[in-house]
Structures are given as C-alpha cells and as structure tokens.
Write a protein that binds this DNA or RNA. Structure first.
Lengths: 169, 169
DNA sequence: CTTGGAGTGTCAACAACACTGACATAAACT
DNA sequence: AGTTTATGTCAGTGTTGTTGACACTCCAAG
C-alpha cells in the first residue's frame, strides 16, 4: 500500500508521497486549523458570536458592497444559514444592508464603523499568529505553504481565492 | 498599518509579512480546509456520520488501544461530546472498548474490522487529495507547508502532533 | 401588458455537534 | 477511610448547518 516505496527512484525522491507523509500532512492540517481559529474564537465567545459571524465579517470587509449571493458562493453555505448570521449582525449594527440601485432584489453589504472595528480586532488576533508562524518559517516555507494549500482547494474555491487575491494586488 | 512596508529592507525582504500577504494566507487556510474535509464529508453524509466520527476513527486507528482520556486531549473536545460519538461507533460495531488490564478504570479503544474498513475508505479519499496537492506542489513546497503549519499550532497541539508523528517513524 | 420563470431574500423547523453543569460508578492512590 | 482519577450519563443550551415553504423583484416571452 505504498507505505514506503521501494525500488528505483527518480532524482528527486518520491518519499514525500508515502502514505505516512500524507497522513502527517493530514494531521498537521487538523492541528494547525485549530490554532488558526483559536484566537478569534476566544474573542467571539465573549460577544455571543461564532465562527460564522467572523467569516461573514471578514469577507464583507474584503469586498465591501458585495451581494448576499456573492457572499453565499464564497462561504459555501445555504442562504438560510448565512441569513441568520447576517440578521444578527445587521440588528447589532455591525453590517449595513442596502437594496441594490439597479436591481432591487439584491442587497449590498457593508461594514459599519462598529463592524470595521470588530473586524480589525479579530483579524489582528488572527494575523498575529499567522505573522509569527510566517516569520518563524521563513519566506521559502511560506511560498511552499501557499502552493500546497492552493493545490488542495476545490477548483471553485481556488477561483474565489484568486479572485479575491487579485482584486487587491 | 504595515500595509506595504516601505523604506529600507534587509537582505531577504520582509515583503512576505505584509498584512496583505497574511490575509491571503488566512484565506488560503480557509478555502483549503474546505477542500481538505470535502471528500470524507461526502462519504460520511451517506452513513449518518459526521466529521466528529471521522476524527475519532482517524485517531483511534492511529493509536490503537488509546484511552478515552488520551483521545479527549488530542481532539480537544469535552468528554460528553466525544462520548456521544463513541457510543454510536461502538453500537454500530466500528469501535471496540476494552477495560484496561492494569488500570480497570481506563477504556482502551480499537477499531474493529468494519471500523478499519471505513477508516480506509475515508483516509483513501482524503489522502488522494493530499497526494495530488503534494505532487503538484513538489517536495520543497511540501516541506514549507509542514513547517508553517507546525508553527501555527498551539504548543499543546504541536506536542500531540509530534508525539503521533514520532510514534510511527 | 400580463404572466411565468428565475433570482433573491426571509421565516420556520430540524439535525449535528459543540458547550456547561451535575451526578454516578468504579478503581486507584494516600 | 477518604480523596482523586477515569469514565459514562442525563439534561439543558448555543451555534451553525440543513430543507421546505413562501414573498418580492426583475425580465422576457407570449
């Protein structure tokens, strides 16, 4: 079962593709993702919000004026699920929803001042950890990190990702 | 706010630590984790199991004979939460729970034959994606990927991770 | 112009899975 | 004997996902 590929190898060995290496990669993803969300989760817990709120806030901040449907595609949840989150955020004055000018079916979403402040708090915490990890690992490792993650995405996710990425660059 | 650090840089530029780079790293983690869990999730949905069952099965397989308490520490959930999952897995004949020989308070957990088969199915799916991503990215990128993920973990998680990693090597 | 379908958003009900708190049992330790 | 440890259970709650049903808006075909 490909546990430890024996026999002749090409120049750059394929040892990094053994089942054991892959399993370590899987476990690394699992444990790292926990760290990745830990800091914002702690902040959100005090505010009666959850990870879903964080995600919504993050992407609304990232693409102000976006429509609900666009957000739906990025987040990959049902509109009902997103709607519950948005409703509380709007009620709490963190998000502003404006009926579209051209198409009144659409709602365009923006963060209010309070929303931007929470976004800043959350992303400061998350970035601090990411920054520490990046700095410890160094630029080459970071490049590899991003390459592998990108290769791991579904193609639609990769499309959303690169669209966001390129929208700022 | 460190958006695009200007001025003099050291030899190996710190451009990879800009807020924008960090944000892209954050979004890459988000989108990649979705892909990471997508394949097992599809399989589990047909079986009335969820991600929590997958995690339990994975780590029981990884460390056969482990105790409930050990699993609790690895998974980072409450015993009530884990217990609900274990109860169904034991009832369905996928996991076997045996009273400890030395310490009869402990329960040692193992996968049954059926459990191993499901584990195989799930991890085949997950490994296939990981393998494709690793192969596309190449060995250096994979090394960087693991370096960054490891740096992103909480220290207790990193301890669990390396303990598992070294237990097989 | 009206009507029907597509797009969009909302309400309600339910399931999965996490949490806390309280408590029970058995075994081990002091 | 009394305390601590390991495990399991019951009850209640919260977040976040799901489906189903429905209302409103827009656009285009009849």
């Amino acid at each position: 079962m490909n546990r430890r590929p024996s026999g002749s190898q090409t120049g750059d060995s394929l040892l990094f593709l053994t089942d054991e290496q892959l399993r370590q990669g899987i476990e690394a993803m699992f444990f790292a993702y926990r760290g990745f969300t830990a800091d914002p989760d702690r902040i959100l817990a005090d505010l009666a919000y959850g990870r879903a709120h964080h995600r919504a806030i993050h992407f609304i901040n990232r693409a102000p004026g976006t429509t609900v449907n666009n957000l739906l595609n990025i987040l990959g949840v049902t509109k009902q699920s997103l709607n519950r989150v948005l409703r509380t955020l709007i009620a709490d004055g963190l998000v502003e929803s404006k009926v579209g000018r051209h198409d009144k079916r659409e709602r365009h979403l923006k963060l209010t001042q309070a929303g931007r402040e929470l976004e800043q708090t959350l992303s400061d915490a998350q970035r601090a950890r990411m920054r520490a990890a990046f700095r410890d690992a160094g630029p080459e490792a970071v490049a590899g990190f991003r390459t592998v993650l990108e290769a791991m995405m579904d193609s639609e996710m990769r499309a959303s990702y690169t669209r966001l990425k390129d929208s700022v660059t």
